[in-house]
Design a protein around this nucleic acid. Structure first.
Lengths: 349, 349
DNA sequence: ATTGACAATGTTACCGGTAACATTAAGAAA
DNA sequence: TTTCTTAATGTTACCGGTAACATTGTCAAT
């Protein structure tokens, strides 16, 4: 009995709520293309016409459909970001900087997290590519063959963040994790610690942590008289702070003369410090602790954590600049930007 | 002299790199629509044909263009998120949970941050809407008239996060900030503190903080014999921890008998504790400190911060569920989900 | 008056998918 | 055998924009 749908009469379609460019055109008594010009190249339209169109845009509350436009312009105005994790605040400020600067240029950020899994990365990547992003940023360094194939076919600018891969896919903004590991280890030896150990999270979860530990190992091999001492938390431990606590225990069991631990992140360091306190070990007199990242609380919390400062926000901002240049077809001067790092000496080591 | 462009011959266009559905169709010797069916309703296609199409998809590495499809289906498979900030880790876990659950259902997350500015919010919103998201989540509570008008016209499900607005735009997932403020204040009075003050960040930056302070004020008015003591950091102070430090100083100057401060966030509490230590005040004997948020470090860092725990990840996950239901046209049982909160007593208060 | 150049605007086709309807083939029911 | 039904696949038009080319009007130069 019910009429199936209002018959597709010319004048009475409107099965959607969105005001279209055609609606604007009719109201302003011009053609669609003129509306398009007013929005994208206003100088090509006579001032009077332009005003009429803009008034119609305002009156109707017209919001252009970028997805429709992208079909012909081949530019979605979307940048996709593949981030290892947002927990722990490591990458949060990078995403913030990225999103802010991209938006200023009219681009939007499509975000996905991989939980450090390269397999998931490939899968997520293919989902992201369905939106045809104009560019891609990613924090991971290790990619599956599938992922690389997808990236290659996509033919879009790619920026890898938070490290400077020896063989970048395309371009990168970061710093040398190896160098930072070396620098902190050297700093600790200079301070007079003789038996530093390295504490990381679950084995092999992250290439960057590996690089740091290699930096540590390089310096120890060169300047110290013992083999590198590297602890990774057992699979069962998921929290970074718990990993730090258990790592400290393991280190002291295995090598009782350990006088200093260099942790893969500030959160891990925090766990180590808590554990030290539980055992009535003084920091740094009985056991020194160094972290990595210089998160908010490293200096303010009474922790006085010696750590390595990374300019997370700057990485995001520079990445935005770089990828914007690349998307506009410019060939930037540098395909790799080194934002550096800084050893921050405080009281914990 | 140079040929302008390869003439648009039927067979030799390919001005883009992307494999299209038509390419797949040709290779599988079927029509486009059959390819479409294989991907979206496989049971409607004969097994043999289906295999041929899937093989072509694999061989060519076809990735569908969701933006093109959205034109007719009117579903972009995008959910937009307007987040106040990613710094400080408050909302990071919510975004993580949100993104994870949305992706599992084939939706992508388009992310933008507002820095707590309602004006920026409206502007950013109109940019986000250009991508025609199927749904929207937002952490802010206060919206400009422009923003509300845009939302209304967009006619998409909206979920407000981290609070339960008395007059929600659409639906919400959160908890009562007022209630949490009341609960913590009551807890502090029960513990025997007589003169609690409230320390917040810059005035009026965030409606949620305001609600908490009102909860505090309500309990103080009812149970204590003095007017509420609310400190807000001066405009110049940007960091939350600095605000906590300066807030403690102000509180003690203005009301020397203050024996306890309830801080608007854990970061603020951290600043207050640091300042107390600098002044050789014992926590909690000389001055007790309570926080809000229960971030990672509240319990693990030796801070032993008494605080209010909020299930940030759960908010994100539930929000994803809720908005997915709404986008699929279901009418969920509850338009508001209260995830609650929990006062976590530790040593600092 | 004619022509050319340019400014302002319009027409047509197409981007890559999908909805709606059309067609074809094969088997079941009459 | 004829007709109906259903399964499998195809055709056409359209979604909301933009590129490319076409048209019209205006004015200066010939």
């Amino acid at each position: 009995m019910a009429t199936p749908l209002s018959p597709t009469t010319k004048g009475a379609k409107a099965r959607t709520n969105w005001v279209t460019m055609e609606d604007v055109a009719i109201r302003a008594q011009v053609s669609k293309i003129t509306v398009s010009r007013v929005l994208r190249a206003p100088e090509k339209v006579r001032a009077e016409t332009r005003e009429r169109v803009l008034a119609a845009v305002r009156d109707l509350g017209y919001v252009p459909d970028d997805a429709a436009g992208a079909l012909t312009t081949r530019s979605s105005k979307i940048v996709a970001a593949l981030i290892s994790t947002l927990e722990g605040s490591t990458f949060a400020s990078t995403v913030d900087g990225l999103s802010r600067n991209l938006r200023a240029a009219g681009y939007q950020l499509l975000l996905a997290t991989t939980d450090y899994s390269p397999e998931r990365e490939a899968e997520i990547l293919s989902m992201l590519l369905r939106q045809r992003p104009d560019g891609l940023v990613m924090t991971s360094s290790h990619h599956t063959a599938d992922a690389l194939a997808l990236l290659k076919r996509a033919q879009i600018p790619v920026v890898e963040l938070w490290e400077l891969p020896p063989k970048p896919i395309d371009s990168s903004v970061g710093f040398s994790n190896f160098g930072a590991g070396k620098a902190m280890t050297g700093f600790l030896l200079d301070r007079g610690y003789r038996r530093p150990a390295f504490i990381g999270p679950r084995a092999g979860i992250d290439g960057r942590v590996k690089s740091r530990s290699e930096g540590y190992a390089a310096v120890v091999s060169e300047r110290a008289a013992f083999p590198p001492r590297i602890i990774t938390a057992p699979e069962a431990v998921t929290s970074l702070t718990d990993g730090g606590a258990s790592g400290l225990v393991t280190a002291l069991e295995r090598w009782p003369d350990t006088d200093c631990v260099f942790c893969s992140s500030d959160s891990v360091a925090l766990g180590a410090i808590s554990e030290a306190r539980r055992r009535n070990l003084r920091v740094p007199e009985d056991i020194a602790v160094a972290g990595y990242g210089d998160f908010d609380l490293a200096g303010n919390s009474g922790l006085e954590l010696t750590t390595v400062r990374i300019a997370g926000t700057e990485i995001g901002e520079r990445a935005a600049e770089l990828i914007l240049q690349r998307m506009q077809g410019e060939r930037p001067q540098h395909k790799s930007i080194d934002v550096g790092f800084e050893v921050v000496p405080r009281a914990s080591a």
